[in-house]
Amino acid sequence: MIRGWDAVYYRELLILKRRFPKMLVSISVSPLLYLLAFSYAMGNQVRIEGHTYLEFLIPGLVAMSSMTRAFAIGSEINVARFYWHIFEEFQAAPICEIAYVLGEVLAGITRAFLSVGVILILGLLFGVVLSCNYLFWIAIFLNSFVFSSLAVGLAMVVKSHADQAMLTNFVITPMAFLGGTFFPVARLPLWAQKVLFYLPLTHASKAIREASYGNLPDVFSYLLLAFIGCFFIFMSIYCVKTARE
């Protein structure tokens, strides 16, 4: 039923391998700038929830970066589809839509994990050691699963590169800033907290942060992310089916 997913994933891995040095620089720049800016601006004086600001920030950056890198698979699909017409090769192959979606979603998750690795190394350079337990990794997996699945579906719906960029601006950028990356959502007005409660990144940041502090995160966040991820993956399969024209 899902045979062929490995070919789709393997292709993405080869591209990743070829671009790895450039990609490594690219995924290091933003977190490095945030860490430099905030470590100088805040120092160790500012404490949030009993932790230094950098200890608060790094799990937030992990959540944000895993989201943006997983979502970026949509741009890759977009280029492959509209510019190189490679999507047609998959459509003409004897593989089902689930296999294609699975291969691309896993590629998005792989990219997300790479970016997390970079942030953790940068964090160490800034003297921040997080507790990278299994709950931490599960939260990252679910977060990247959600956004990678969403990206695959949206990449089938958009009609051009410009639409893809617009989606990133309207979906990802606001979430990155409001989803608990840079400040606790609890400090916002109640109405804003209610709105942000529905964003997956809010739950991902919360779960990743709690796990990295060595606390037990809220199970609800994990369940919600898993539910949203499954919903998006079904949506993506449907979108790939309807993209056949």
Binding site: I15, W84, E88, P94
Partner: peptide
Amino acid sequence: NLDQELTVFENLDIHGRLF
């Protein structure tokens, strides 16, 4: 519709895997 960033071999190899 070839993968421009991949080698000749890799392009053929991916297609073989798809089948």
